[in-house]
Design a protein around this nucleic acid. Sequence first.
DNA 1: TAATAAAATGCAAGAGCTTACATTTCTATT
DNA 2: AATAGAAATGTAAGCTCTTGCATTTTATTA
Lengths: 340, 340
Amino acid sequence: MSKEQPTPTLQDVATAAKVSTATVSRCLNFPDQVKEKTRTKVLKAIKMLSYSPNFGARAMASRRTETIGAIIPTMENAIFARGLQAFQDELHLHGFTMLVASTSYREDIEEEQIRALVGRGADALLLIGHARSPDIYRFLEAQAVPALVTWAFDTSLSRPSIGFDNQKAMCRMAKKVIDLGHRNLALVSAETILNDRAKARQLGIEDAMVAANFCAKTLHVVKTTYGIEEGATAFEQVMKAAPQTTAVFCGNDVLAVGALRRARELGFKVPQDVSIIGFDDIELAEIAYPALTTVHVPHREMGRRAAEALIKLLNKGTQIEAVELEASLVFRDTLAPARN
Amino acid sequence: MSKEQPTPTLQDVATAAKVSTATVSRCLNFPDQVKEKTRTKVLKAIKMLSYSPNFGARAMASRRTETIGAIIPTMENAIFARGLQAFQDELHLHGFTMLVASTSYREDIEEEQIRALVGRGADALLLIGHARSPDIYRFLEAQAVPALVTWAFDTSLSRPSIGFDNQKAMCRMAKKVIDLGHRNLALVSAETILNDRAKARQLGIEDAMVAANFCAKTLHVVKTTYGIEEGATAFEQVMKAAPQTTAVFCGNDVLAVGALRRARELGFKVPQDVSIIGFDDIELAEIAYPALTTVHVPHREMGRRAAEALIKLLNKGTQIEAVELEASLVFRDTLAPARN
DNA sequence: TAATAAAATGCAAGAGCTTACATTTCTATT
DNA sequence: AATAGAAATGTAAGCTCTTGCATTTTATTA
């Protein structure tokens, strides 16, 4: 049992170094405002005591935390990981810290996490997608915490976003698919109520169908939750309910990989019998066999730009300007002309 | 330009509800200590003002944050993600918040992140692996922040850990490989200096070799950094330098998937020409083609148990007891008897 | 109804830091 | 050597909460 020694404070350091707390504080925050000799003395005391500033106190006193919170639906898969890593790297470069929280795609948890992060003094927030209750936006406004939306791009909303147009991107992909002769289309999608990206992707397919004079209603949609196994099950449902389907879009690569697997297990040849199209272009897509045709999302770029914008806003007050990035189509091996 | 309205404080709520700050505070922290009627009043004021407690102030005053920090090498891949998600889920169940930071496998960044999290008032820390400078352990002790090590298990250290024995697990796998007639073994590994898991895995293979009366020095080791592409390159190096190799162990699945890909690209048949063995059993392993033979790590269980132990420690002072979990061998399609 | 105990609330002292302003110590100039 | 001005340091107020203790209100019992 170690005796409960209280953790050292600024005051302790000041005493040990025989200076005032102000000097120690400046030593930490504005090193060049204090004389070399004093600084050495103070630094030594800090090391000796293993002192580490109390963040809460600092935040309270300075009204600034240099912390940016990121709230993502899930950490389990790589969908958000890469963009987040880029975001974090950029923040780190500028002395900011990133705090991550995940919501499991649940709105109530998201709200909770937003509050937690704001309460923890996040200077700004990174959010995924636009869809959430107005209450939350109101709350953020009341707390004067700027929030930036990524993974989506929509100028019709007043909120700035840095991302790409999910609908447009998916529409382009769907057009290609239709060009390849596919007429019986299906979509395995996440629930679209609180997931505007999923909804936009569905709309994109429908746009392409309408443009090709199909009835958008013939798109066979199966909704499911997130996961490889879920994708597999959904694929099976699709083929059971609509056996004439020749192309199955998936709302993301994780679902697509599941679909792909189940297709194989059920004896479908991909892409000869059925084409499968993903979205995101995460590592899984390339590793999958056959390699997945998908829509490439510029995760890294997005993360980096988001960080930049937020830092500029925080440091110089520069308003965030919306940035639309381009998602590109990646044709690999799971898309082929429709069988006839 | 919205006029800079200061964010509301406890005091503001108290004023609005015509009670004292103490009552508001109790309303938030010990709701049943305040009369129903008062509580309603206060809650209304809170909602009206969009009040959210200032975490820093609370932490300072109560000397408790209900926050646990997790510091992992990388978020980019699924290796730590699943365990972390389980950790987070369990914490959430008990009202704790998890804060994640990543280090890119760099010791200096790890130290920085540990300090950041401790400074932010983390009540405890989750760390990966044992290997780090004694300074850091000293620092944590000075700050009285308990730290739990996972992804490793080693009773010879005084620090408690909840994880599995990397060396033993890899040794078992290596024995199987040797049993299949492989004599020319290679290992694609992460740098082992600051990565005790990587080192333990290497030692495991060597143990098995010694047990089979091979010279451990014949293990052809190529060190590389983390990533699929890196794994691919390393594999190529191995086969160039030691073409007689029939089995390539990889320090983790990510490297293995890269190796697997390059093997195919170079015209090696896997597993007929060369066997490839991974470690971790993340999703990628199953998706890879051929599906990867690997060592399954009980990520979820590990995360959950770690959370449990930490919560017990924090809530009831129960000392953490080390838990050794079992890693199991998963034989899929990349391992076959050695060609002769 | 008075007396007592229990419950609810209020008061005010911190918790560890930053920073405006005051004071002291240097440096450079004459 | 004296002195103005700059640089370094110190003083103390204030940031927002929690909580021990004091006080008031409510409930209970004789």
